[in-house]
Design a protein around this nucleic acid. Sequence first.
RNA 1: GGCCCGUUCGUCUAGGGGUUAGGACGCCGCCCUCUCAAGGCGGUAACACGAGUUCGAUUCUCGUACGGGCUACCA
Length: 480
Amino acid sequence: MTQYTNQSVRVRFAPSPTGELHLGGARTALFNWLFARSHNGTFLLRIEDTDKVRSKQNFVDQICESLNWMNCDWDEKLVYQSKRNDIYKKSIQKLLTSDNAYRCFCDKEELARIRGEREKAGLGYTYPGTCRSLTQNNIKVKLENNTLNVIRIKIPKGETKFSDSIYGEITVQNNELDDFIVARTDGSPTYNFTAVVDDNDMGITHIIRGEDHISNTPKQIILYNALGYGLPQFVHLPMILGPDKKRLSKRHGATGVQAFRDQGFLSSALVNYLALLGWNPGTEQELFRLEELIGEFSLERVLKKGAVFDIQKLEWVNQQTILKMKNEDILNSIHSINMLWGDSRYLDYLLSVIELMKPRCKTIIELMDSSDYFFDDPQEYDSKTMRKRWKTNEVNELIIYFMEVLKNIVTWTQENIEIELRKLSDIKELSPAKFIHPVRLAVSGAGAGPSLFHMMEVLGKDVCIRRLEKAVEILPIDHD
RNA sequence: GGCCCGUUCGUCUAGGGGUUAGGACGCCGCCCUCUCAAGGCGGUAACACGAGUUCGAUUCUCGUACGGGCUACCA
């Protein structure tokens, strides 16, 4: 078992700012963060922006915003790879002088052609090593002629093995590996190289990243060795998959963290659900507060198998989270996505609306959408309910009776409203439902919703009477 | 193609040589009930396949199948 006690944990999340933070990245960030926080360690953020064309500052901002929203705060300053070019240059020089890397003058197109042919023939391809043993003189001449060249790592003979915290022992024969490029023709370094240099410089103890990096690991280990660095612990996390079992991507629809926020998911719910993808606490608990996750999380209980992302379960977690939240906190979450919600009303009124609606929605967007009638008189009535509950003019008569009763209520509470309604239904020898359903339709426009009496209490006497009067005027509507 | 990784209900998962294979989401039914939710109760449904080891394998080993990842002057 890995020992964490001797050195303090330092981990990092290293996104490349070529897009917004997606679920896979969010999960990787979260597991890094949980691991750091549960070991009193340090969580760092590194921006892998060596691809100058695709990297954008606004994506950096978005990623940071998403992480902040998830409460995954990072320690120390952001590290931008684009600002570390001098350091990479020096390391590449070191590789060259120690004979662990070499200049390759091969033509890019020519190499691509050979690779294409090999692939067509169903054969594997690795760089043939043409430039591996160029003489000093040879190199000098080509350099003088300004021949374009890249720097390749010299993969040593033998095999490379490492022990992954999740996947266990992994061994790869070095001859399967390519003399891959560490610096491009323009001198800029490539991913496998910068990752190694930075992880070493940043003192990273555990490299926690997606399983898609397992095959990069042997290459990186060879670089660690070539540069004389000590090895960190490698920890590869299983992938998050779409319903087709392929790695989750844009193809599967909106997978950006911010899209989930905008759809009314709470960050604590998303975090809770994401934690459950590929990890479990070994108990039957499924709902966690962030602090509980920190307490429970351990790498030992991370699975090897990819997990399919299930929106329905996320919705359930979100609903459960809403249910447990204080109304004030729900209001804050609502206002964080729509500042104007309910701005014409008093705080107490908004809290009452939330109290009534919160067991009836999976997301806070749903909560907002389904509470319209607490703010505006219904503009239309649910047609199915209309046909079922307000078919004839007899209903109008009943509602008119009921309105008279309501007008006489002095203390407008749900109890009093209910007492009066039941009294009236007794008098008319009708079931209370004969009143309840049309009244709900008139007052809310909907066929379903919170307890009618509670709803009426919150809406207030004047509003209820006004809406009932209007309904009596226009209902029933003839349908053919 | 090659290399690496994986495989328990539809999905997330527990378990692990002998279990009625447990939980959760979803779905279905019942209860509660003024409707819809929430809640309660119950039901549906899984160890990929084949060998081997063993008294006994879903669990260990090896194959096969299937799935995924990587195989760039992307990260």
